[in-house]
Amino acid sequence: MTLDWWGLGLQAINVLILVWLLSRVFWRPIAGAITRRQDAAQAMLEEGKTAQAKADAALAEVVETRAGIAKERDAILAEAKAAADKATKAELKEAQSKADAMIAAARTAIDRDRNTARKENATRAAELSVEIAARLLGRFNTPAVQATFLAQLVEAIAGMSASDRTALIASADDIEIITATNPEDAERANIEQAVKDALDGTPSVRLVTDPSLIAGLELRSGHFVLHNSWRADLENVLKEVENAG
């Protein structure tokens, strides 16, 4: 057995070349790929940590903001409640004032209506009283009453001033003597004569019947009226009652 030194050297060179070649085309590329993946994984981990830190910071900020929002919400709610209470009190006060004003106005209106009603009632009662009196007095329209009214008429004419009596006599219009009932001829003549005597002249008189007088005699011309009847008396009473109310 001999050792081939050429072969030994050649094989050593062959293995050295193989070591060099495989280092170039096999070991380094694969180790580089592993290293690149490790670096990429490390970078992703770092990126993940950074993202986690950012997310944590954002979460903390959100929590803080949420706390601030809750605080602000409470403040706004408290402020709104205070404003609502204030507005409620103001509204209540205003409503109370309006209600008081309305109550006062209603009371005033009620008093006014009550007074108006009372006046109306009084007026109506007076009118009713006058009407009742007129009907009652209508029953007592006797010749004696008529004579009394004639006497009162004559007395009233006598009470007139001379100038008024002269103006009445001198008026061109006919003087009307208003009676409540149509008198007999004798009585009619008596009345006309009594009036003419009272007027102290010969004026033109005409007798006219007006049942609304109830009882009495009145003297009328174009510009003159001498009331002397129960109707006139009742109207006077009614006016006085109304004025008194």
Partner: peptide
């Protein structure tokens, strides 16, 4: 299986 190759490896 040859001496030269193994010897070369050992020398390396």
């Amino acid at each position: 299986a040859k001496l030269e190759t193994d010897a070369a490896l050992a020398v390396l």
